[in-house]
Design a protein around this nucleic acid. Structure first.
Lengths: 238, 238
DNA sequence: TTTGCAATGTGAAGCAATTCACAGACATGA
DNA sequence: TCATGTCTGTGAATTGCTTCACATTGCAAA
């Protein structure tokens, strides 16, 4: 079985497809590899299809005219991105960049469109995907509207802990390398403020800082301070 | 033909349905009327289905813990709302309120779910809907991240002009009654700042203020000041 | 190792926007 | 008609955050 096929099969969206459909799909896809820190697509690029991340990690972001940038999402293996091309928009509105060495499968527009028409399971899957991402953006919007810079940062740390947290002797270590600038770009703040707030949280004993590394030592207190139930670390990796 | 049927038929989502499907759908729906300024559903209400606005106007919003509120969207006749229940979330996350006397058609969860499975056109329509609303939220997020209070207000006015603007001798009159508080709730600001900025814009000769009424006298300049092409008023009503 | 560059830490100054407090205008129902 | 409540206008005080400027630290490539 081709590598490509395997990745397609392992994607939630296509799980329900028949072997024939899968092979047909596979034959129409292209695979590309991207080194670390290289762009996959840029704003105003031609939106030629939907992308499936096979390996690596991708970040989706957006620039303002003044050059400031925000990170909209991180994509993990098995997840789909660039899905706005399904809306019929001819151009991409954000950029995608490989954070790690990544391999990506491109599913051309006509192929996915056809699949959408034929397979209720795929179309249902896409609807769910859109809905989920929309919920996420809406939540983020609310945080931006209502909460202080500090609250937003704490909330982000908790979210990251849910997704990337690994329990250690000291506490929950975030297994994703993010600079203060990155954190700032996510919560819509500045590098300096993030540095300061993180410093405060450290002196308050809520976390420990390393270079591009954060360990949350008091999740309960952090979660409580932003009125969120302390998350149970569901899929903590070894 | 029943009133209900007529409204269903006139909704984009169901345009492609066969007469039988429509009748089947109609038999399972309920109609409710809401006076002005009454809630249709509230956060944490049981999400029993998707709603279709037949007549009137509805606003979708959200509260923070401290009681601040934001307006997420206005719904016009023929549009669907409360569609997050399609995601399987058992509870509503926002509130919906009738701004005008409104009549609403409730499509129960199981009915719409079944339809989604059977009709590709419906499922495609829902996907488009989700995608569209997500784009809108994302744009708003970017504005909130990157632009000043003033820019956001100007941008909002332009958007409102596109949707509700009516050309008059003085300029483009916004045919929707919004208080300064409402505007503030949309752009994520305070009533006072909105009052001030509107005042400034008036002395600059960009618009004229009335009680709950705004007339844009210099659309071009306004659009230019936020780097947006001046919109052509597509569907200006008499 | 050494060197260079990105990431982090810190303080001072400035500013946009919020908060608070109050006054007048208008509108609508009693 | 009056009266009450919502909507609008305005100023002073405060603040949370940004901006700018620079010092320091540590990783990674040469």
């Amino acid at each position: 079985m081709s590598e490509r096929l395997w990745y397609l099969k392992n994607c939630d969206l296509f799980r329900q497809l028949s072997p024939e459909q899968l092979t047909a799909l596979e034959s129409r896809c292209r695979v590309r590899k991207f080194p670390r820190n290289t762009p996959i697509y840029l704003p105003a690029d031609h939106a030629d299809g939907v992308l499936l991340l096979a390996e690596g990690r991708v970040k989706i972001g957006s620039f303002s005219e003044e050059g400031k940038q925000t990170i909209l999402a991180f994509i993990e293996p098995g997840e789909v991105f660039g899905e706005l091309s399904l809306m019929g928009t001819p151009e991409r509105e954000e950029y995608a960049e490989a954070v790690e060495k990544s391999t990506v499968i491109l599913i051309p527009n006509d192929v996915i469109q056809q699949l959408l028409g034929q397979c209720p399971s795929v179309s249902l899957g896409v609807t769910k995907l859109f809905g989920l991402r929309r919920q996420r953006v809406e939540r983020r919007l609310k945080y931006l509207l209502f909460r202080s810079n500090r609250d937003r940062l704490v909330h982000l740390l908790i979210e990251l802990a849910e997704q990337y947290g690994k329990p250690t002797a000291d506490g929950v270590e975030l297994r994703i390398k993010l600079s203060h600038q990155d954190l700032a770009s996510i919560i819509g703040s500045t590098r300096e403020t993030v540095t300061v707030v993180l410093g405060e949280l450290q002196t308050e004993g809520r976390l420990k800082l390393g270079r591009r590394k954060i360990t949350l030592t008091d999740m309960d207190q952090l979660a409580h301070s932003v009125n969120v139930a302390s998350p149970v670390l569901s899929r903590a990796q070894a």
